[in-house]
Amino acid sequence: MPFNPTPILGGTVREFYWNWKKKPVTVVYEVLGEGQPILLLPAFSSVSTRGEMRGLAERLAQRFQVYVVDWVGFGQSSRPGFRYGPALYHAFLKDFVRGVFHQPVVVIAAGHAAGYVMQLAPSSVWSWIVLVAPTWRGPLPTAMGEHRWFYNLLRFLIRLPLIGQLLYWLNTTPAFLGWMYRRHVFADPAHLTKALLDEKWRTTQQRGARFASAAFVTGGLDPVRSRSQFFDYFQPPLPAPVMMVIGEQTPVKSLAEMEILAHFSGVGIQILRLPGSLGLHEEYADQLADGILPFLNKYLS
């Protein structure tokens, strides 16, 4: 069950009841504002929570009705000891969208959420798609290459009661989280305040948090296995208008993937370049809102 689901965006907290392999799951999401609906999907990470979409949600809620979800296994949603993988999240996103919305909806997805959004796009559930710093490969495979046997071993070890908890603790200390944010997530270290880092750390300390987190870090939540599979999602004709937002300080390997998609895949997606890195949706929320609102106004007028 979720831990004390409370408003963190100033909106109304709702719960979506779901089942995965006959096991009940409660997904927490928050709604704020009025008007046409927009769905915000936070990035997968060890500290994933709908709270990272706060600034963007508050800006968009001035005109739209904004839905912000905590993924299964993260935030205030249930965190059971599943063997988390793409099939779970593909199924969840499909059921959530069809259960909550009754017409195609605008979706703004950060990081790894991009692959899940594009996989669902042919179902005509999206009216417009914004992908913010889209990624398809987890941190360890990006840094170390494709050593699946090793990542499978890590996931097995982290599931163990004692050694797993120790390994997870070592990778979620405030010092390690701060290093991760400065290296990959935020472009300006001055934006990483102690209060923000404490909030991130508390997110990692919830019961059951290590299972989905370990799956993401080791590549177990990668929506595809190769760049070509990811690019296949963008072959024309696109099922909905797509904008891709690229952070100017994105880490080299991730930036190269985005630039290839932007320039050499031959697809007609709109490109928006902003300050920031993989966490630009949180760090530069106002600039992101300023960049996408003209397009939202055009498509939703």
Rank of each mutant, 00 (worst) to 15 (best):
D286Y: 13
E248A: 14
I8S: 13
E58Y: 03
A143N: 10
T203N: 14
A209H: 08
V31D: 02
F186M: 15
S254I: 11
M244A: 11
H191D: 12
G111R: 00
R227M: 10
K253S: 14
A212P: 05
R63L: 01
V97H: 07
L166V: 09
L288I: 01
F176G: 01
R14D: 11
H102C: 08
I246M: 08
V107E: 00
R202F: 13
P141Y: 05
Y67M: 00
P80M: 03
R137L: 13
A289W: 08
L60W: 00
P161R: 02
S226E: 11
D222Q: 09
W71Q: 05
A190T: 13
Y17H: 15
I163W: 10
Y84M: 05
T49F: 05
Y233E: 05
N152G: 12
S228E: 15
Q206N: 08
G178L: 09
E259P: 07
A114V: 00
W18F: 15
L296K: 00
D286T: 13
V106T: 15
N171F: 12
W149S: 14
K22H: 15
V130Y: 01
K298E: 13
G55Q: 02
G145C: 03
R183W: 10
G138L: 06
W136E: 04
T142W: 00
E52V: 03
T193N: 12
V97E: 10
M244H: 04
I158N: 06
S48G: 12
S213H: 04
L167D: 08
L160E: 11
V105Y: 09
H147L: 10
A114G: 01
I269C: 10
E257Y: 15
T172W: 07
H184I: 10
D286K: 11
A109S: 12
P161N: 05
P24G: 03
S123H: 15
A195Q: 14
P42M: 04
S123N: 10
E257L: 13
G164D: 06
G10E: 05
L140Q: 11
T172P: 03
F3K: 09
K94L: 11
W136K: 00
L32I: 12
E257V: 14
I292K: 00
W201V: 07
L293M: 14
H191G: 15
